[in-house]
């Protein structure tokens, strides 16, 4: 009898530990999907132009603010406001490409990195000036409510992020691999000049890819609004986590970005739960360095050597 009680208590403890683990896993996956969603934007631009956009997180931040303006200030319906923000940001992405990136296409990669770092500074300050420095919040259909599976509790806002990531990732994967425009994008990333000779309007392709990546960033920003709120530094903070995610997955791979994001998210949430304080913030970077040591081009990256 006594033994049985002890045994059941032990089982109970094991159950609780298991539940904790699953809970951490799920919240890590949700967090990771956020990183993955931002990382998708990095990968898109890189895939089409071999340019790394350091302002991607700031585009996300700006998308969040646009959505706040449409939904919170102008009082549009959530989905309508969402669509308006995505459309506005797509235009903004094209504008940014035209002004900042197009004049330096063809120069070394580092020029573009610096230019987009500058763009990021600029966007952060301007957003701070226009919308202030307070945390803003958007009321969304996912803001409240939880889904219960047994004793597992999942918030709708996190589930919405996971669902959106899966859908966007699938759509973009199909777009890049099956459509003509997607193929044109991959071609111009490998060799702009040859792509141009083949009749691909390279300038327009680059413009479109920036529009798409700004739109994806906006989706991330709006879906994140209930979880992290919107403030002018959110892009920098999350961008710095999404960037390792993209690198971990191998910079040119769309599924890689999401897998990398989920890995980073899970590592972060597990380290926060099981390891002493302080590990949470560095664990993703330690894993990243370890992976880069073993596979310098990321998990799904292409390994290409120049032939001499």
């Amino acid at each position: 009898m006594r033994q049985a009680v002890v045994k059941s208590r032990g089982l109970h403890r094991e159950d609780a530990a298991m539940l904790d683990f699953v809970q951490q896993l799920v919240s890590g996956v949700a967090l990771g999907c956020v990183y993955g969603l931002i990382a998708l934007g990095f990968v898109l631009v890189y895939k089409a132009t071999e340019v790394v956009n350091f302002a991607q997180g700031d585009l996300m931040m700006l998308g969040g603010f646009f959505a706040f303006t449409f939904i919170g200030m102008l009082g549009l319906n959530y989905w309508l406001g969402f669509a308006a923000a995505v459309a506005a940001m797509a235009l903004f992405g094209m504008l940014a490409e035209r002004v900042v990136v197009r004049p330096i296409l063809g120069y070394p990669q580092f020029s573009v990195i610096m230019a987009t770092i500058g763009l990021g500074y600029f966007l952060r300050s301007i957003a701070g000036m226009i919308w202030g420095t307070d945390d803003l919040k958007i009321e969304t259909p996912f803001s409240q409510g939880v889904l219960r599976i047994g004793s597992l509790v999942l918030a709708y806002d996190k589930l919405s992020v996971i669902a959106a990531t899966v859908i966007l990732c699938a759509l973009l994967y199909i777009f890049f691999n099956k459509t003509t425009l997607g193929t044109a994008m991959r071609a111009s990333s490998e060799n702009m000049l040859a792509a141009y000779y083949m009749g691909i309007p390279v300038k327009r392709v680059v413009s479109i890819v920036w529009a798409i990546s700004a739109a994806v960033a906006t989706c991330a920003g709006v879906l994140l609004a209930p979880i992290t709120f919107i403030h002018s530094n959110v892009g920098l903070v999350l961008g710095l986590k999404a960037f390792p995610a993209a690198v971990l997955g191998g910079f040119g791979s769309i599924p890689g970005a999401v897998v990398g994001g989920v890995l980073i998210g899970v590592i972060e949430s597990m380290a926060g739960f099981y390891l002493p304080e302080g590990w949470k913030d560095v664990a993703p970077y330690i894993v990243l360095l370890a992976v880069l040591l073993l596979k310098p081009e990321g998990l799904f990256g292409l390994h290409v050597r120049k032939k001499v």
Binding site: I104, M114, L119, Y121, F122, R124, S125, G128, M129
Partner: peptide
């Protein structure tokens, strides 16, 4: 005296240098 004007000026300076005086 707007907050963050320094950041904006920084950003513009970086972009101008990359674009016009590499």
């Amino acid at each position: 005296s707007l907050n963050g004007l320094k950041g904006a000026i920084y950003g513009i300076i970086i972009m101008l240098f990359v674009l016009f005086e590499p």
